[in-house]
Write a protein that binds this DNA or RNA. Structure first.
Lengths: 193, 193
DNA sequence: CGCGACGTTGATTTGCCTCAACGATTGTGG
DNA sequence: CCACAATCGTTGAGGCAAATCAACGTCGCG
């Protein structure tokens, strides 16, 4: 279990077993049932979550009540309301559980302590954030340059596993279209083959 | 001149004058005329640029030849093709100069050296990247949840200075609409007041 | 069983794009 | 210094991608 976290870290920085032990001290493991809301707008996000099992998502709800999914968090991923977590201002997003999950919880203040005790983590999270940034930059450009169908194709190549285990309305929301349009698009797409 | 860089760094980490001296060794200053292309798709982005004066932009061009601006880089900002710079694979973006500029140039391999010599930079760039990520996440959501007019309003509040010194077709491109539509939108917007 | 969540399909509307034409401004070479 | 081209912004007509609204079938589950 704990291995998934350290496997992940090991992809970018090499920790000693002593350093791993320190990190372990600050990680709390927890399980949540589907539909549990971990963060909602107005909260202060004191925690970041590392997913061991299950699926979470982060999203906003607009004035018309439509949800817009920013990210799916699957095993091996971190998730929180970055804005709130980093600035300690009010959250703007929901984080909730889509499939029963096990997570590690890290408190904001503990992360700051860990940065001091295990400086390598500074690098680890830098690299993690860099990769996340690249992905988000690409997503901004994709939303501007590609059609819904192209975004769908791209998504299904990038996350072939997610596509079959989630209600498709969530995929529509991630892609940036309505469930109705997504349905029509998909049937047109399949008819072509 | 060099001060702008260190003022910027000082917002997030405290450097000794010795550390500043080390960093200075790896910075090359350069000036470029408007329209100079610093990076284009297919290149390998070996450099990142810190803007002292002038304006640069990063953007992609889609299959129809339309440009989509990812970012404007004004004094105090860093700019490069993050994807290429970090992975050292082929660039996917253009970086070019919109107004004659002075920049500091940092080589990818020098940054790696600097991370070793001045570990505080690891933190500095982590924080910088975190803030950049938050902004890009918000932009993804804005493109999904807001109308063009709302995105325009948001942009003009966030960058009131940029709006008056750049041809508006570039702002249209950043917002994610055509210049024609932007023009109509703007005149409708002004008529309302 | 009956309710609620989900996916589908159709009719209609709308936000934004495309294409084309036209002034105004800029700038550049002769 | 002018002439001409290039760039930019505006406006209009028409078109298309995607949203909206509504109705309906299906499935899983309390």
């Amino acid at each position: 279990m704990k291995n998934l976290l350290f496997q992940n870290i090991a992809k970018h920085v090499q920790l000693t077993s002593q350093e791993e032990a320190i990190i372990e001290q600050y990680c709390t493991q927890e399980s949540y049932k589907a539909k549990t809301v971990l963060i909602k707008p107005g909260d202060e996000a004191h925690f970041t979550y590392f997913v061991l099992k299950g699926i979470l998502r982060s999203y906003t709800v607009d004035d018309n009540g439509n949800a817009h999914i920013l990210s799916f968090a699957v095993p091996g991923w971190w998730v929180t309301d970055m804005y709130s977590f980093l600035t300690q201002k009010k959250a703007i997003m929901y984080i909730d559980v889509m499939e029963d999950c096990d997570v590690f919880i890290l408190h904001k203040s503990d992360i700051e302590i860990l940065y001091e005790k295990v400086p390598k983590l500074e690098r680890f999270f830098r690299i993690l954030t860099e990769n996340n940034l690249i992905a988000n930059q690409q997503r901004v450009l994709d939303k501007m340059a590609l059609t819904a169908e192209e975004r769908y194709e791209k998504f299904s190549k990038k996350y072939p596993d997610i596509i079959n285990c989630l209600p498709q309305k969530y995929i529509a929301s991630y892609i940036g279209v309505t469930p109705e349009f997504f349905s029509k698009m998909k049937s047109k797409f399949l008819r072509k083959k």
